[in-house]
Design a protein around this nucleic acid. Sequence first.
DNA 1: CTAAATAGCGTAGCAGATACGCTATATCGC
DNA 2: GCGATATAGCGTATCTGCTACGCTATTTAG
Lengths: 249, 249
Amino acid sequence: MEKNELPPDVALMWRLREAPRRGPKPSLSLDDIVRAAIEIADADNDLGAVSMARVAERLGNSTMALYRHVKSKDDLLVLMSDAAIERPDPMPEGVDWRTGLTFWADNVLAAIRKHRWYAKIPISGPPAGPNNLAWFDAALGVLNGTGLPEEAKVGVVMGLITYVQGQIRVAFDLAAGYDENPAAFQQFGATLRQVADPRQYPAVARLVEAGVFDEVGNFEDESDQDFDFGLQLYLDGVAAYIDRVCQDK
Amino acid sequence: MEKNELPPDVALMWRLREAPRRGPKPSLSLDDIVRAAIEIADADNDLGAVSMARVAERLGNSTMALYRHVKSKDDLLVLMSDAAIERPDPMPEGVDWRTGLTFWADNVLAAIRKHRWYAKIPISGPPAGPNNLAWFDAALGVLNGTGLPEEAKVGVVMGLITYVQGQIRVAFDLAAGYDENPAAFQQFGATLRQVADPRQYPAVARLVEAGVFDEVGNFEDESDQDFDFGLQLYLDGVAAYIDRVCQDK
DNA sequence: CTAAATAGCGTAGCAGATACGCTATATCGC
DNA sequence: GCGATATAGCGTATCTGCTACGCTATTTAG
């Protein structure tokens, strides 16, 4: 298996292009481009604000110059997503797996909260970027002490990733919607009250009756609490699973 | 609280526009438009194929005619997403909560698998469409026999929704990527072998050593298995939670 | 010194969303 | 009935954005 058999986009992500020999010195670097794109997305808090023209403008270059460094805009988005999550914070020494995974999950959310547009980037392939891989590695490493077989570790981590990705999609997309139109959220209880016919939606109607939707607290706090509640339920399940597997040994 | 205080997009979704009095008979209906848009997205298996022009063409109308029925394309997307998930299958009689939630989750996945583009539609507000609400209601209803307080039911269901949304994002986005470029997936193991330096990525390197990425089975089957594994872990956690709460009583 | 490879860029084509205003049509109040 | 009025459909035009193509200048291999 040779180096050149790597798919070109992966090679790009790992910065594995062999140094070119002839031609003018590049005035742009891939890192500059990715950084500029991230800055634009951050500044506007909106992935839609990233256009090739705007990225080029920020770098003082022409639009088409970017295409010497990325194959397409989609390419750039993938590079942005790997760059934006950076690296996980170092895991505290000697923590048990449960503390470690909770730390990890909170860490992911904190990293992505800095770049809310992350949720909007299409996942087009396996997570092959260096930063993504570092996160994956960190989560796996936490399970080293558990005695789970490798396959099982992957399953547990995949489940965790799935849950975290769900939170990213649900909570961050919603947060973007909230910024755009807070009224829709504040009216949600009232809307349901009008629209949730108790015959068709008995369980929802009961919630409305119980006033569950009436107090509108801090949006982010609540979604963090919901996330943590669900996460702990999942980890309870993992704990039971570890007991089960290790008992058999 | 009057009917007219509903946000206009919500009113649209619930088809609550009062019958207009004057003007020509509409030759287009909102339902036609939404149905046509869904058919296009399904046929191309790609949300990007849905353009206002193409939807109009399929209906034999001009592009701009659509704008008499939807405010914007984003509006149309939201309507599509609520319409596409239809209603949940009726819950089998007398099932326990665990069977019920598993049934529900599998049901969601099956419903969305018919419309893979669903994952790409931005969530811009609380899930206020009639079909979405029906799903929410169904999941809540399953927990009726458990004795959990209303707030706790919401938490459990929100966690489940989060996990399911994660699966939708991860698995379905990946499936789309797979269709586009299967090679990237088949090479994934080999790619990691080259790129996963054991010093930087010890846990991943161990997986590679163990050959976890070597056999490439059926993509959808595997992702279903992963989903179910994680789901059962979560439900184990819910079971423990229910025990805890009901013991206190 | 010449050939080859490469960086940047100007132009242009194409697709897509949608604002605006026009025309025809149906209904309301009289 | 009859005008006033609101509404449906649509043609045109504008604006934004991605990117193919080809030119020029630059650098280095041989």
